[in-house]
Design a protein around this nucleic acid. Sequence first.
DNA 1: TATTGTTATACTCTATAACTATA
DNA 2: TATAGTTATAGAGTATAACAATA
Lengths: 178, 178
Amino acid sequence: MERLSSGYDIAMTASAPTPRTGAAFLLAQLGAHAAGLFAERIAGLDLTPAQAGLLRMLATNPGRSQRELAGDLGMPPSRFVPFADELEERGLIERRRNPSDRRIYALHLTGKGEKLLAELAQVGMNHEQQICESLSPEEHGQLLELLRRIADQQGLHPDVHPGYRRLHPKPKPAHDTP
Amino acid sequence: MERLSSGYDIAMTASAPTPRTGAAFLLAQLGAHAAGLFAERIAGLDLTPAQAGLLRMLATNPGRSQRELAGDLGMPPSRFVPFADELEERGLIERRRNPSDRRIYALHLTGKGEKLLAELAQVGMNHEQQICESLSPEEHGQLLELLRRIADQQGLHPDVHPGYRRLHPKPKPAHDTP
DNA sequence: TATTGTTATACTCTATAACTATA
DNA sequence: TATAGTTATAGAGTATAACAATA
């Protein structure tokens, strides 16, 4: 347990630290934890993580077609339709016809959607603070750099979250350690 | 349950990190990525992540009841039964009656289950290497320490993975308070 | 009466495939 | 014929509630 500086290969093959204490497991565990906590927070805004993801995508890259967006979110077009319907009915997003190709809808954020996105950003900052509460500012920066490096090398899209594929997640709080 | 520190709230506002580039988002994104990759790997052993999780739990802590295990895995007892059935039919785990309380089944790993667990450990090491490929041994150790600190402070059980529970909708209140 | 394991049932989420309207 | 959006439907996954055996 007390071997952080020894060689990488040796540290792993020395039997004791089985997968469950490795970085990959911790990432999966903490990732699910953070995602669940975030889902609880934005439930106060009547949003699911996937909905929040779409709002962010539309802010960054407006006017894209439903099929493109569905593809990035990892859901089939048939599921995207009612998904977008609800946000449109709530006046958060807008479908605009493309005059040059009338098959396509260009999706945009409404003013109301932009306002909600601003609230979402605030919630996100509180969330970040809660997750990183045990780190000093320096360590927080270190973690950010390491995570970004991995995400970059693993080819992850900056906006897209593989977890959005599930529409209604919601892990419950973990229980205490005995 | 001791708080290690508090009051590091400035780090967020310093640079431009909108939610999608923060550590919490990266953790959720990378966690889903790593979990998916791991699921693909162990599919070669005909195992799902939750099944692998149960095998590990039984190795660490044998003889527990189904209800306890179901609780840790985050699934209702009704779902745990067919879940354990399959592993028992495959000869990986064993149900033993408790003579003092005949209602309870004590679950144990079989020899075959232990062998599979060893293969699983090998797969886990390859997985770890793939995820952390872009890090030096020193950085890998740094990351491990930071992640362990967060997981500890957030009260996560060393063995349990919140992602094992595939919970569902039911909008919950949950407002901000940090 | 309470608890463990189990079964039964109803409900939700999801993917696949058909349909329409444009091209 | 091919593509964007939409609708319909059937299947998988899930939770809830009821059940029998044991305490």
